[in-house]
Simulated assay, not measured.
Amino acid sequence: MSWDPGGASQGKGKLYVIMRFLRIEQTLFSLPMAYLGAFVALKKIPPVPVLILIFFALFFLRIAGMTNDNLADREIDAKNPRTRTRPLVTGAITVTEAKVMIAIGLLGFFVSAYLVNFWAFVLSPIVALVVMTYPYMKRYTAFANYHLASIQGLAIFSGAVAALGLYYDSLVKVLEGVPWLFVIATIFWAVGFDLYNHIPDMEYDRQMGLHSFAVALGNLALSFAGLNQLISVIIDLMADFTYGLGFLSYIATVLHGLIMAYAYYLATRNDFGRAFYYNIYSSIVLGLGIDIDVVLGIPRL
Protein backbone atom coordinates (compact mmCIF):
# COMPACT_ATOMS: atom_id res chain seq x y z
CA MET A 1 0.00 0.00 0.00
CA SER A 2 3.04 2.28 0.13
CA TRP A 3 3.40 2.58 -3.63
CA ASP A 4 3.40 6.12 -5.01
CA PRO A 5 4.23 6.87 -8.67
CA GLY A 6 4.93 10.52 -7.85
CA GLY A 7 7.28 10.03 -4.93
CA ALA A 8 10.95 11.02 -5.18
CA SER A 9 13.80 9.65 -3.09
CA GLN A 10 15.85 12.10 -1.08
CA GLY A 11 19.36 13.06 -2.21
CA LYS A 12 18.67 12.74 -5.93
CA GLY A 13 19.51 15.30 -8.62
CA LYS A 14 17.07 17.92 -9.87
CA LEU A 15 16.41 16.15 -13.18
CA TYR A 16 15.44 12.95 -11.36
CA VAL A 17 13.14 14.91 -9.06
CA ILE A 18 11.43 16.62 -12.01
CA MET A 19 10.95 13.32 -13.85
CA ARG A 20 9.36 11.72 -10.79
CA PHE A 21 7.29 14.84 -10.19
CA LEU A 22 5.87 14.72 -13.72
CA ARG A 23 5.69 10.90 -13.80
CA ILE A 24 6.93 11.38 -17.31
CA GLU A 25 6.83 7.66 -18.15
CA GLN A 26 3.05 7.83 -17.92
CA THR A 27 3.04 9.81 -21.17
CA LEU A 28 3.21 6.30 -22.63
CA PHE A 29 -0.44 5.88 -21.61
CA SER A 30 -1.48 8.67 -23.94
CA LEU A 31 0.94 8.63 -26.88
CA PRO A 32 -0.06 5.23 -28.35
CA MET A 33 -3.71 6.27 -28.05
CA ALA A 34 -3.08 9.60 -29.78
CA TYR A 35 -1.32 7.85 -32.64
CA LEU A 36 -4.13 5.29 -32.79
CA GLY A 37 -6.59 8.15 -33.29
CA ALA A 38 -4.49 9.65 -36.08
CA PHE A 39 -3.85 6.36 -37.92
CA VAL A 40 -7.44 5.10 -37.73
CA ALA A 41 -8.91 8.46 -38.73
CA LEU A 42 -6.80 8.62 -41.91
CA LYS A 43 -6.44 4.87 -42.54
CA LYS A 44 -2.81 5.59 -43.42
CA ILE A 45 0.39 6.94 -41.89
CA PRO A 46 -0.03 10.63 -40.96
CA PRO A 47 2.73 13.01 -42.07
CA VAL A 48 5.84 12.69 -39.88
CA PRO A 49 5.79 16.36 -38.80
CA VAL A 50 2.28 15.83 -37.43
CA LEU A 51 3.38 12.75 -35.49
CA ILE A 52 6.23 14.75 -33.97
CA LEU A 53 3.93 17.63 -33.06
CA ILE A 54 1.44 15.22 -31.46
CA PHE A 55 4.25 14.00 -29.22
CA PHE A 56 5.26 17.53 -28.23
CA ALA A 57 1.65 18.57 -27.61
CA LEU A 58 1.16 15.61 -25.25
CA PHE A 59 4.53 16.17 -23.61
CA PHE A 60 3.86 19.83 -22.82
CA LEU A 61 0.28 19.20 -21.73
CA ARG A 62 1.61 16.47 -19.45
CA ILE A 63 3.92 19.02 -17.84
CA ALA A 64 1.09 21.50 -17.28
CA GLY A 65 -1.50 18.98 -16.15
CA MET A 66 0.63 16.94 -13.77
CA THR A 67 2.21 20.04 -12.24
CA ASN A 68 -1.22 21.57 -11.72
CA ASP A 69 -2.42 18.31 -10.17
CA ASN A 70 0.48 18.26 -7.72
CA LEU A 71 0.05 21.93 -6.90
CA ALA A 72 -3.67 21.57 -6.24
CA ASP A 73 -3.10 18.53 -3.99
CA ARG A 74 0.00 19.80 -2.17
CA GLU A 75 -1.67 20.13 1.25
CA ILE A 76 -3.59 16.87 0.83
CA ASP A 77 -0.45 14.99 -0.18
CA ALA A 78 1.43 16.36 2.82
CA LYS A 79 -1.04 14.69 5.21
CA ASN A 80 -1.13 11.34 3.39
CA PRO A 81 1.65 8.95 4.51
CA ARG A 82 1.72 7.41 1.02
CA THR A 83 2.42 10.72 -0.76
CA ARG A 84 4.65 12.60 1.66
CA THR A 85 7.75 12.18 -0.50
CA ARG A 86 6.31 14.08 -3.47
CA PRO A 87 8.64 16.93 -4.50
CA LEU A 88 6.17 19.77 -3.84
CA VAL A 89 5.59 18.38 -0.36
CA THR A 90 9.27 18.00 0.50
CA GLY A 91 10.25 21.31 -1.08
CA ALA A 92 12.47 19.67 -3.71
CA ILE A 93 10.33 21.64 -6.18
CA THR A 94 9.02 25.03 -5.03
CA VAL A 95 5.58 26.50 -5.66
CA THR A 96 7.15 29.18 -7.86
CA GLU A 97 8.94 26.55 -9.94
CA ALA A 98 5.67 24.65 -10.30
CA LYS A 99 3.84 27.73 -11.56
CA VAL A 100 6.59 28.36 -14.11
CA MET A 101 6.32 24.75 -15.28
CA ILE A 102 2.56 25.12 -15.74
CA ALA A 103 3.09 28.26 -17.84
CA ILE A 104 5.76 26.56 -19.96
CA GLY A 105 3.60 23.46 -20.40
CA LEU A 106 0.52 25.35 -21.53
CA LEU A 107 2.52 27.60 -23.84
CA GLY A 108 4.25 24.61 -25.42
CA PHE A 109 0.92 22.81 -25.83
CA PHE A 110 -0.83 25.73 -27.53
CA VAL A 111 2.15 26.41 -29.82
CA SER A 112 2.28 22.73 -30.80
CA ALA A 113 -1.48 22.73 -31.50
CA TYR A 114 -1.11 25.90 -33.60
CA LEU A 115 1.63 24.30 -35.66
CA VAL A 116 -0.46 21.16 -36.28
CA ASN A 117 -3.47 22.77 -37.95
CA PHE A 118 -6.22 25.34 -37.48
CA TRP A 119 -8.80 23.01 -35.93
CA ALA A 120 -6.31 21.50 -33.50
CA PHE A 121 -5.55 25.02 -32.28
CA VAL A 122 -9.22 26.01 -32.06
CA LEU A 123 -10.09 22.94 -30.00
CA SER A 124 -6.95 23.02 -27.84
CA PRO A 125 -8.46 25.26 -25.10
CA ILE A 126 -11.22 22.69 -24.52
CA VAL A 127 -8.65 19.92 -24.13
CA ALA A 128 -6.56 22.07 -21.78
CA LEU A 129 -9.63 22.99 -19.73
CA VAL A 130 -10.53 19.33 -19.16
CA VAL A 131 -6.96 18.53 -18.13
CA MET A 132 -6.49 21.51 -15.83
CA THR A 133 -9.81 21.16 -13.97
CA TYR A 134 -9.39 17.47 -13.09
CA PRO A 135 -7.68 17.83 -9.68
CA TYR A 136 -10.56 19.89 -8.32
CA MET A 137 -13.31 17.45 -9.28
CA LYS A 138 -12.56 14.95 -6.51
CA ARG A 139 -13.56 17.61 -4.00
CA TYR A 140 -17.12 17.31 -5.29
CA THR A 141 -17.92 14.04 -7.06
CA ALA A 142 -16.84 10.43 -7.52
CA PHE A 143 -17.15 11.03 -11.26
CA ALA A 144 -13.71 12.61 -10.99
CA ASN A 145 -12.52 9.13 -12.03
CA TYR A 146 -14.37 9.54 -15.32
CA HIS A 147 -13.04 13.07 -15.65
CA LEU A 148 -9.49 11.73 -15.46
CA ALA A 149 -10.42 8.93 -17.85
CA SER A 150 -11.82 11.43 -20.35
CA ILE A 151 -8.34 12.95 -20.57
CA GLN A 152 -7.08 9.63 -21.91
CA GLY A 153 -10.01 9.53 -24.34
CA LEU A 154 -9.10 13.03 -25.48
CA ALA A 155 -5.70 11.69 -26.54
CA ILE A 156 -7.42 9.65 -29.28
CA PHE A 157 -9.67 12.59 -30.12
CA SER A 158 -6.72 14.96 -30.35
CA GLY A 159 -4.68 12.61 -32.50
CA ALA A 160 -7.57 12.26 -34.92
CA VAL A 161 -8.13 16.03 -35.08
CA ALA A 162 -4.41 16.59 -35.68
CA ALA A 163 -4.54 14.26 -38.67
CA LEU A 164 -7.98 15.11 -40.11
CA GLY A 165 -7.50 18.86 -39.78
CA LEU A 166 -4.85 18.66 -42.47
CA TYR A 167 -7.43 17.59 -45.03
CA TYR A 168 -10.79 19.11 -44.03
CA ASP A 169 -11.77 22.75 -43.74
CA SER A 170 -15.05 21.80 -42.06
CA LEU A 171 -15.09 21.19 -38.31
CA VAL A 172 -18.12 18.93 -38.78
CA LYS A 173 -16.16 16.65 -41.12
CA VAL A 174 -13.23 16.59 -38.72
CA LEU A 175 -15.48 15.57 -35.83
CA GLU A 176 -17.28 12.99 -37.95
CA GLY A 177 -13.93 11.37 -38.74
CA VAL A 178 -12.93 10.90 -35.10
CA PRO A 179 -13.00 7.18 -34.12
CA TRP A 180 -15.43 7.80 -31.27
CA LEU A 181 -15.79 4.13 -30.29
CA PHE A 182 -12.09 4.03 -29.44
CA VAL A 183 -12.49 7.29 -27.49
CA ILE A 184 -15.29 5.77 -25.41
CA ALA A 185 -13.45 2.47 -24.93
CA THR A 186 -10.39 4.33 -23.70
CA ILE A 187 -12.45 6.19 -21.11
CA PHE A 188 -13.71 2.93 -19.61
CA TRP A 189 -10.18 1.46 -19.69
CA ALA A 190 -8.74 4.48 -17.90
CA VAL A 191 -11.37 4.43 -15.14
CA GLY A 192 -10.14 0.96 -14.24
CA PHE A 193 -6.47 1.83 -13.88
CA ASP A 194 -7.21 5.18 -12.21
CA LEU A 195 -8.95 3.30 -9.42
CA TYR A 196 -5.67 1.45 -8.79
CA ASN A 197 -4.46 4.84 -7.56
CA HIS A 198 -7.52 5.51 -5.40
CA ILE A 199 -8.23 2.17 -3.76
CA PRO A 200 -5.08 2.25 -1.57
CA ASP A 201 -6.15 5.72 -0.34
CA MET A 202 -9.78 4.81 0.24
CA GLU A 203 -9.86 5.37 3.99
CA TYR A 204 -7.69 8.47 3.86
CA ASP A 205 -9.82 10.04 1.12
CA ARG A 206 -12.97 9.28 3.10
CA GLN A 207 -11.52 11.04 6.15
CA MET A 208 -10.51 14.04 4.04
CA GLY A 209 -13.94 14.30 2.39
CA LEU A 210 -12.53 13.48 -1.06
CA HIS A 211 -14.59 11.62 -3.63
CA SER A 212 -13.90 8.66 -5.91
CA PHE A 213 -15.63 5.42 -6.78
CA ALA A 214 -13.22 3.76 -4.37
CA VAL A 215 -14.76 5.81 -1.55
CA ALA A 216 -18.30 5.41 -2.89
CA LEU A 217 -18.15 1.66 -3.47
CA GLY A 218 -15.75 0.48 -0.79
CA ASN A 219 -14.96 -3.22 -1.20
CA LEU A 220 -16.78 -3.27 -4.54
CA ALA A 221 -14.44 -0.69 -6.07
CA LEU A 222 -12.01 -3.23 -7.50
CA SER A 223 -14.84 -5.18 -9.15
CA PHE A 224 -16.09 -1.88 -10.58
CA ALA A 225 -12.62 -1.21 -12.01
CA GLY A 226 -12.61 -4.64 -13.64
CA LEU A 227 -16.10 -4.15 -15.05
CA ASN A 228 -15.09 -0.86 -16.67
CA GLN A 229 -12.09 -2.48 -18.30
CA LEU A 230 -14.17 -5.42 -19.54
CA ILE A 231 -16.59 -2.95 -21.15
CA SER A 232 -13.63 -1.17 -22.74
CA VAL A 233 -12.42 -4.37 -24.43
CA ILE A 234 -15.90 -5.11 -25.79
CA ILE A 235 -16.17 -1.60 -27.26
CA ASP A 236 -12.64 -1.87 -28.69
CA LEU A 237 -13.69 -5.05 -30.52
CA MET A 238 -16.76 -3.23 -31.82
CA ALA A 239 -14.47 -0.44 -33.01
CA ASP A 240 -12.18 -2.90 -34.82
CA PHE A 241 -15.21 -4.12 -36.76
CA THR A 242 -16.86 -0.72 -37.29
CA TYR A 243 -13.72 0.92 -38.70
CA GLY A 244 -12.92 -2.01 -40.97
CA LEU A 245 -9.65 -2.98 -39.30
CA GLY A 246 -7.80 -6.24 -39.95
CA PHE A 247 -7.13 -9.32 -37.85
CA LEU A 248 -3.98 -7.83 -36.31
CA SER A 249 -6.15 -5.20 -34.63
CA TYR A 250 -8.34 -7.92 -33.13
CA ILE A 251 -5.23 -9.72 -31.87
CA ALA A 252 -3.91 -6.48 -30.35
CA THR A 253 -7.27 -5.84 -28.69
CA VAL A 254 -7.38 -9.31 -27.15
CA LEU A 255 -3.80 -8.97 -25.89
CA HIS A 256 -4.70 -5.54 -24.53
CA GLY A 257 -7.52 -7.18 -22.60
CA LEU A 258 -5.38 -10.06 -21.34
CA ILE A 259 -2.77 -7.67 -19.98
CA MET A 260 -5.52 -5.72 -18.23
CA ALA A 261 -6.83 -9.00 -16.80
CA TYR A 262 -3.39 -9.78 -15.39
CA ALA A 263 -3.18 -6.27 -13.95
CA TYR A 264 -6.55 -6.87 -12.30
CA TYR A 265 -5.21 -10.11 -10.83
CA LEU A 266 -2.25 -8.19 -9.38
CA ALA A 267 -4.65 -5.62 -7.93
CA THR A 268 -6.61 -8.39 -6.18
CA ARG A 269 -3.34 -9.24 -4.45
CA ASN A 270 -2.90 -5.59 -3.38
CA ASP A 271 -0.03 -5.11 -5.84
CA PHE A 272 -1.49 -1.85 -7.13
CA GLY A 273 1.85 -0.46 -8.30
CA ARG A 274 2.49 -3.24 -10.80
CA ALA A 275 -1.19 -3.35 -11.74
CA PHE A 276 -1.09 0.33 -12.61
CA TYR A 277 2.04 0.06 -14.73
CA TYR A 278 0.86 -3.01 -16.62
CA ASN A 279 -1.70 -0.68 -18.17
CA ILE A 280 1.18 1.10 -19.90
CA TYR A 281 2.02 -2.19 -21.59
CA SER A 282 -1.60 -2.77 -22.58
CA SER A 283 -1.77 0.71 -24.10
CA ILE A 284 1.38 0.15 -26.15
CA VAL A 285 0.18 -3.23 -27.39
CA LEU A 286 -3.19 -1.87 -28.51
CA GLY A 287 -1.80 1.29 -30.10
CA LEU A 288 1.06 -0.38 -31.96
CA GLY A 289 -1.04 -3.32 -33.07
CA ILE A 290 -3.72 -1.13 -34.63
CA ASP A 291 -1.20 1.28 -36.15
CA ILE A 292 0.70 -1.58 -37.80
CA ASP A 293 -2.59 -3.03 -39.02
CA VAL A 294 -3.45 0.29 -40.68
CA VAL A 295 0.01 0.71 -42.19
CA LEU A 296 0.05 -2.80 -43.67
CA GLY A 297 -3.52 -2.53 -44.89
CA ILE A 298 -4.35 -5.97 -43.57
CA PRO A 299 -7.77 -7.08 -44.90
CA ARG A 300 -10.62 -6.93 -42.42
CA LEU A 301 -12.04 -10.11 -40.94
Rank of each mutant, 00 (worst) to 15 (best):
L266I: 05
L237A: 13
L237F: 13
Y265W: 13
Y243V: 12
L230K: 04
L230Q: 02
L230V: 12
I231H: 03
Y243M: 12
G257F: 02
D236R: 01
S249D: 05
Y262F: 03
H256F: 13
A239F: 01
V254I: 15
V233D: 09
D236L: 14
L237Y: 09
F247L: 15
D236P: 07
V254R: 10
V254L: 15
G244D: 04
V233I: 13
A252K: 06
A261Q: 04
G257P: 02
L258T: 07
L245I: 07
L230A: 14
Y262Q: 01
I251L: 15
L245C: 12
G244I: 07
L258R: 08
D236A: 15
M260A: 14
S249L: 08
S232T: 01
M238A: 15
H256R: 07
D236Y: 14
I251P: 10
F241Y: 11
M260K: 11
L266C: 11
T242N: 05
H256C: 09
Y265T: 03
I234W: 02
I259Y: 00
Y264W: 05
M260Q: 14
F241R: 06
T253P: 00
Y265P: 08
I231M: 09
L255C: 06
G257H: 00
M238R: 04
H256V: 02
D236I: 13
I235G: 09
A239P: 07
Y262C: 06
L258F: 11
Y264K: 03
S232M: 00
Y262V: 01
F247S: 15
V233R: 02
S249F: 06
L245G: 11
L230E: 03
L230Y: 02
I231T: 11
A263E: 11
M238I: 15
L255R: 00
D240A: 10
A263C: 09
Y250W: 13
V254F: 10
F241T: 08
D240Q: 08
T242P: 00
M260W: 05
S232C: 02
D236G: 10
I234R: 05
Y264G: 04
F247T: 13
Y262T: 00
I231C: 08
L245P: 10
L237G: 11
L266S: 10
M260N: 13
F247K: 14
M238K: 03
T242L: 05
G246Y: 04
M260E: 10
